[in-house]
Design a binder for these strands. Structure first.
Lengths: 101, 101
DNA sequence: CGGACTATTCGATGACTGTCAAATAGTTTG
DNA sequence: CAAACTATTTGACAGTCATCGAATAGTCCG
């Protein structure tokens, strides 16, 4: 059994939640990691160079997903997270490039 | 006597404070107002279509200025605020365009 | 089934934030 | 100087947020 966690459609992506999601050092680092490596990647706390607990990381994934920045796939015990590069670009062209430069 | 309120130099503009400053509906509206009208503009609460008190507006101007997004000139009793369009673009090319689109 | 594993949810906590009323600082004008 | 004016600072407050430990849900494997 595999599925996708709830996320806003392209039209539902709003600038304020997106900026709020990006305006955190940890989440910005996660976005950078997603961009620099091939997608999708595991959600596991061991996969990222962040000094936070598993519950906190899970919280950050949720914030990013609900803002419309990422997609999370459920597959068995693991989660796969992917940057919604094209969707974000369609809604706010150049934003990710500008933020991650 | 005229002067400029303290603000970060171009090199000191950091992405996280910038995003934090932009991630507020009122401040985003202020940035939009600054962009759409010729600069500099007054800081007065009566000049903007926001439903907040004068102290709160003053607080928002400070957040924007300390993030490096605006410059505030002191001239007598009034303050003139200006978007640091070129500086922000030099540091994070395309950011303002992407956010305000 | 039962243990190991991945990840989330829950509850609590300390820090930060947006907001306002009141007081204050500095400037202009009468 | 005194009053009016623009704007900030201070102090307080309610709400939000990042964080963690503990508990929970669901999955895989022996």
């Amino acid at each position: 059994m595999s599925s996708t966690l709830p996320q806003p459609s392209i039209d539902e992506i709003e600038i304020v939640p997106v900026l709020q999601a990006l305006a955190d050092p940890v989440r910005l680092e996660l976005i950078r990691a997603l961009r620099s490596n091939p997608s999708p990647r595991s959600c596991a706390v061991t996969e990222y160079d962040v000094e936070i607990s598993a519950p906190t990381l899970s919280h950050h994934w949720k914030v990013l997903r609900e803002a419309g920045l990422t997609t999370t796939f459920v597959e068995g015990r693991t989660r796969w997270v992917e940057l919604r590069t094209e969707d974000v670009h369609a809604r706010f062209p150049g934003l990710l490039d500008a933020v991650l430069a």
